[in-house]
Simulated scan of single mutants.
Amino acid sequence: GVGRRRLKWRPLAMLRHSLSKILGRAASAAAPVATRATFARSAVFGHRFKTGPSASPNEISDELLGKLGKLSTQALVDGLWVMGWPPAQIEGARSLAKGMKCVGRAVTVRFVPARPDIAQDKPGGEISPEYEAFELCGPDSVIVMASVGPWESVGGDIKFLRLMQRQVGGLVTDGSVRDTDTMIGYGIPTFSYSTTAKQGPAAMQPWECNGVISCGGGTVRPRDAII
C-alpha cells in the first residue's frame, strides 16, 4: 500500500537530500543543466551533422568540480541515477595502485584498429592526436583514452612521460598500459582495464583528439567531470 511505497522511495529521498547538503545548490541544479545541454545539442545538430559538437556548452565550475571530487564514486553513481542520468561509470577501469583518485575535466583520445593507410595518413610526431591531447592537459585535466580492446596498449613510460611533465590529474582507459612500475613512479593516478607488455601500434592507432568517445561502455565528452 501507500506505506510500502513510502518506505521504498525514502532511501532515494535521503540520498538526494545528502547530495544537496554536500553540493549545495549544485546538486539540485544538475538535472536542469543536463536538460539544457540536450536541447542545446539538438539546436545546433543540423548545422554540425558531420562531427557534432564535441564539448557540452555547460561548463563545470572549479567549485563544483572540487565538491564532486570529495564524493565516492559510489555516491556519484547513485546520485546520477536518482537524477535520471544513464549509467556514467567507465566499466573495468582499475587503479594501478591503492589510494589513487583522479579529479578533472576530460581530454579525450580515440584509437581505431590499425591499417596501413591509417598509419600513413595519421599525423606523426608531436602533432599526432595523442600528443596533441597531452598538450591540452594540466593538473585539472584527466585524459580519457578509448582503446579498441581491453588488452591493447594505449602507452607506457616513454609516451606518458609528457603527461607527468604536464602534471596531469589522471589517466583513464578501457585498454591497458605498459611499464607499470614506472607509471606508478610518475605519480599519475592511472585507471586501466589491465597491464600489458604489448606494443599498441601493431593493433591500433590514435586517430582523434577531443571528440566524443565511448570508453568502458560510457559516453565521454570533452570537459566532462571525471572522478
Score class of each variant (00 low, 15 high):
105 R>T: 13
69 G>T: 04
111 F>A: 00
120 Q>P: 12
93 A>W: 10
164 M>L: 14
148 V>H: 04
127 I>W: 00
69 G>I: 12
158 I>K: 05
86 P>V: 07
159 K>D: 06
106 A>P: 15
125 G>V: 05
130 E>P: 00
163 L>Y: 05
121 D>R: 15
134 F>Y: 09
124 G>H: 14
156 G>C: 13
119 A>N: 03
91 E>A: 12
75 A>C: 09
87 P>D: 13
79 G>V: 03
125 G>Y: 04
71 L>D: 08
113 P>A: 00
164 M>G: 10
165 Q>R: 13
99 G>H: 10
106 A>C: 15
136 L>M: 14
80 L>Q: 14
148 V>Q: 07
170 G>A: 00
145 M>F: 08
138 G>C: 05
131 Y>Q: 14
122 K>S: 00
141 S>V: 06
166 R>E: 04
111 F>D: 01
125 G>D: 10
141 S>I: 07
73 T>M: 08
102 C>D: 01
109 V>A: 07
130 E>H: 10
117 D>K: 08
100 M>I: 01
137 C>T: 10
83 M>H: 10
112 V>G: 00
148 V>D: 02
110 R>Y: 12
91 E>H: 03
129 P>S: 09
133 A>I: 14
150 P>K: 02
101 K>R: 09
133 A>F: 04
156 G>S: 11
155 G>T: 05
143 I>C: 03
157 D>K: 05
104 G>T: 08
131 Y>T: 08
91 E>M: 07
81 W>E: 01
149 G>L: 05
160 F>H: 00
132 E>L: 08
103 V>M: 09
81 W>M: 10
168 V>N: 05
112 V>T: 05
145 M>C: 11
133 A>V: 11
123 P>S: 00
101 K>S: 14
72 S>D: 11
104 G>M: 02
157 D>F: 07
113 P>M: 02
156 G>H: 03
144 V>L: 04
113 P>C: 03
84 G>N: 06
74 Q>D: 15
138 G>Y: 08
132 E>F: 08
119 A>K: 12
115 R>W: 13
162 R>D: 13
89 Q>I: 14
92 G>K: 06
169 G>C: 04
161 L>Y: 01
81 W>T: 04
114 A>P: 02
84 G>C: 04
142 V>E: 01
127 I>P: 02
154 V>G: 01
140 D>Y: 00
75 A>Y: 15
156 G>P: 02
131 Y>H: 15
